[in-house]
Design a protein around this nucleic acid. Structure first.
Length: 348
DNA sequence: AGCATCCTCGCGGTTACATCA
DNA sequence: CGTGATGTAACCGCGAGGATG
C-alpha cells in the first residue's frame, strides 16, 4: 500500500531569479568549496537586484513593499501583538514599519549585506565589521529578548558564521520570540516557501538573518509534513482495519454460502467463479459477464425451480460489501490521496 | 543540440541546545 | 539540583533543476 502524502502543491518556487548570498561562516556547508569563481556571478546578480529591481539608488526596495501589505492585512493579527514586552516591541516594530523609508544603506544592504556576508565568508568581516549589518540597520529590540544572532551581541554574522563569531563554541542556539514565531507562522500560512525577496524582507522585519528565516521555513515544512504523514498513517490504519473486517465478513459469508450449497444443491447452481471469488480481488465488478452467462448454462443443465436464487440477482444487488466498501466514503479519500491535494489543513 | 560544470535550493536526517516536568 | 523527555534551531549531505560555457 502506498502512502500518498498530500502536502499540497510543490514547494517549488518560481522566485529563484534572485540569489542572495547568505552569511557563510567557517562551517559554511555548501559553497565554501565553490567559493572561487562565484563572486563574479554574484556581483552580477547583485547588480541585477540593485538596478533591475529596486535600484541601488532607489529608496524603496521591493522587499519591504511586497510582503507586508499582502501579509498583515490578511492576518488579522495585531501587530505588534500585545505582549508583556510592549516596550521592547515598540522598538522592534520599527522593523515592521512598511512605510518607513528605508535608508539607502538599507536598500542596498538588502542585497549587499548578505553579499558581504557571503563574500566575507569565514572572514572576520562577516562577524562584526560590516557597517550594514541588519542589527545596525534595524535597531530593534529582538536582541533584548535574547533573540539576537548567535554571539549574543545582536550581531548577525550568518548562521554559518555563528561558529566563528562565537569564538569557537559551535552552534549557540537561540530561540525565536513569540512575536517572531507568530509572524513567521502567519507568513508560512501565506506561502510555505519563500522567494529570496520575501525571505530577505522577513529577515529584515524580524531582525533575523535570512538564513534563520530560511531554516525556520525548512523546519516548518518538515513539521507540517511529519504531521501530515501521521494523519495519513492513522487514516491508512483505519482503512486497513476496515478491510480486514470486511475480509472477515466475506469469508464468513462465503462459508455460509458453501454450507448452503451442500444443504440445498438445487439452489446453488452457481458458477464456481462466484463462489470462489476472492475478497481482495477486484473482479467483483467484472463478474457480471460470467454471472450472466452462468444462469443460462445452469438452466440448461440444472433448471432452478425458484427461477434464480442468489446467483440470479445482479451483482450490484448482492450483498457484496466489497463493492460497498469501494463506494464507501472512507475509500474515496484514500484514492484521492493519491492525487496531490491542495493543502492539508489538518495539521497545525 | 548535447554535454559538463557550477550554483542554488529544498529535503531528509541528524545534532545540539533550551525548556519543562 | 539533577535528569530524562520534548521541541526546535541549526547543520550536513544529497539530489534536482537551472544557468552558463
Amino acid at each position: 500500500m502506498e502512502l500518498g502524502l498530500s502536502l499540497g502543491e510543490t514547494m517549488a518556487d518560481a522566485g529563484r531569479d534572485l540569489v542572495l548570498g547568505l552569511g557563510m561562516g567557517a562551517g559554511a556547508r555548501r559553497d565554501e568549496d565553490a567559493e572561487t569563481g562565484r563572486r563574479e556571478r554574484e556581483a552580477r546578480r547583485e547588480l541585477e537586484f540593485g538596478a533591475g529591481r529596486c535600484g541601488r539608488a532607489s529608496p524603496e526596495p521591493a522587499v519591504r513593499l511586497t510582503l507586508l501589505p499582502g501579509l498583515m492585512p490578511g492576518l488579522g493579527l495585531p501587530w505588534p501583538p500585545p505582549s508583556e514586552a510592549t516596550g521592547h516591541l515598540e522598538a522592534s516594530t520599527r522593523g515592521f514599519d512598511v512605510n518607513r523609508a528605508p535608508s539607502l544603506s538599507e536598500a542596498g544592504a538588502a542585497a549587499e549585506d548578505d553579499e558581504e556576508q557571503d563574500d566575507a565568508g569565514a572572514g572576520a568581516a562577516a562577524a562584526s565589521s560590516s557597517p550594514n549589518n541588519s542589527a545596525g540597520s534595524f535597531p530593534t529590540d529582538f536582541s533584548a529578548h535574547g533573540q539576537a544572532g548567535p554571539g549574543g551581541g545582536g550581531d548577525r554574522a550568518g548562521s554559518r558564521a555563528s561558529d566563528e563569531d562565537d569564538g569557537g563554541s559551535a552552534r549557540k542556539k537561540l530561540r525565536l520570540s513569540k512575536e517572531q514565531s507568530a509572524f513567521l507562522e502567519e507568513s508560512f500560512k501565506e506561502h510555505a516557501t519563500l522567494n529570496p525577496k520575501q525571505k530577505l524582507a522577513l529577515a529584515k522585519q524580524l531582525n533575523l538573518r535570512p538564513r534563520q528565516v530560511e531554516v525556520w521555513f525548512q523546519n516548518r515544512r518538515a513539521r507540517t509534513k511529519l504531521k501530515q504523514t501521521e494523519v495519513d498513517c492513522e487514516y491508512l490504519k483505519r482503512c486497513c482495519e476496515t478491510l480486514t473486517e470486511e475480509n472477515r465478513r466475506l469469508q464468513k459469508e462465503l462459508a455460509e454460502l458453501r454450507a448452503l450449497k451442500t444443504v440445498h444443491p438445487f439452489y446453488m447452481h452457481l458458477p464456481a467463479t462466484t463462489l470462489s471469488m476472492c475478497p481482495s480481488c477486484e473482479r467483483v465488478a467484472s463478474n457480471s459477464a460470467p454471472a450472466a452467462a452462468a444462469p443460462a448454462q445452469a438452466a440448461s443443465s440444472h433448471p432452478s425451480p425458484a427461477g434464480g436464487g442468489i446467483a440470479s440477482a445482479p451483482p450490484e444487488q448482492r450483498p457484496s460489501s466489497f463493492a460497498a466498501l469501494f463506494s464507501s466514503p472512507l475509500s474515496r479519500p484514500l484514492a484521492a490521496q493519491q492525487q496531490p491535494q491542495p493543502q492539508a489543513p489538518a495539521s497545525s
